[in-house]
Design a protein around this nucleic acid. Structure first.
Length: 249
DNA sequence: AAGACGAAAGTGGTTGA
DNA sequence: TCAACAACTTTCGTCTT
């Protein structure tokens, strides 16, 4: 899609071209430009003309990209995620998907989708909270985008949740490895189907922490995983039933 | 006393008629 | 559009460490 070569950033709605570009092939001091620069200028003018023709769309985009970087900032997201989100939003605009949806909700959905694609672990709640909007709205828009854009978004695998939780809980490498081992077996047995990834991950971490010397309470883990103890217990019970013979290390 | 457990009722979202 | 349904939560009483 980029006909102007790789721009420095997709975040700026006009790609940093908000000043007017004169028609003369001279620089600020009146000197003639090298042909390479002239060609570049020419392409820049084309871009500017194109963006002027779709004024309302551009204003819309500017607002959305602003929203995206705001949310990204609130969540401390790395730059590439923000960039990805911006690209996704542009695609959404091109496919006329924002119609009937608020800019904000689409922006949030894009950020979330970008997180998934870049394998950055943020729950939908996290993202929605960062934009202080209700999860419900965000979820709906996200699903819609997912369907319409039909893009390949990797399923949120519990494994990344495991890593994050292990870190936040200050658990050691042994515990993490064991947790992932348990998780691997669990998903092999199809015990992860239709379950929330957080719940699965939390249960694995919990079991693992019990088996090693680094015990953590259900409450601690639940808080970290943003679920309740009850859910951990349910997952944990299911896992324990099916796996009791598999874990003896 | 804190943590783990589980029953029961409630919530919000999906699905399919 | 509505009802059934699954996953998850809330609440609360009881058992365990």
């Amino acid at each position: 899609m980029p006909r102007v070569g790789a721009p420095t950033s997709w975040i700026l709605h006009d790609k940093g071209l908000s000043t007017n570009i004169g028609w003369q092939d001279r620089d600020a001091t009146g000197k003639r430009l090298r042909s390479e620069d002239r060609a570049r200028l020419h392409r820049l003018r084309m871009w500017q003309r194109r963006s002027r023709t779709s004024d309302s769309q551009e204003r819309n985009l500017a607002q959305a990209l602003n929203e995206i970087s705001k949310v990204s900032g609130a969540l401390n997201l790395p730059r590439n995620v923000t960039e990805t989100a911006s690209v996704i939003y542009r695609r959404a605009v091109q496919s006329q998907l924002i119609r009937g949806r608020t800019i904000q909700s689409v922006a949030v959905a894009c950020v979330y989708m970008a997180c998934r694609q870049c394998r950055v672990t943020r729950s939908l709640d996290d993202v929605a909270a960062g934009a202080d909007m209700v999860k419900k709205e965000a979820a709906r828009t996200y699903r819609f985008l997912l369907r319409e854009l039909g893009s390949s978004v990797p399923l949120m695998d519990p494994e990344s949740y495991v890593s994050r939780m292990v870190n936040r809980l200050g658990l050691g490498g042994d515990t993490e490895r064991l947790a992932k081992l348990i998780l691997a077996q669990a998903s092999e047995m199809k015990l992860t189907n239709g379950r929330g990834p957080q719940g699965i991950a939390a249960a694995c971490v919990y079991i693992s922490s019990q088996l090693t010397s680094e015990r953590r309470t259900q409450g601690e883990i639940a808080r970290e995983a943003q679920i309740t103890e009850v859910t951990i217990r349910n997952r944990y019970k299911e896992l324990a039933q099916r796996m009791e013979f598999n874990i003896q290390l």
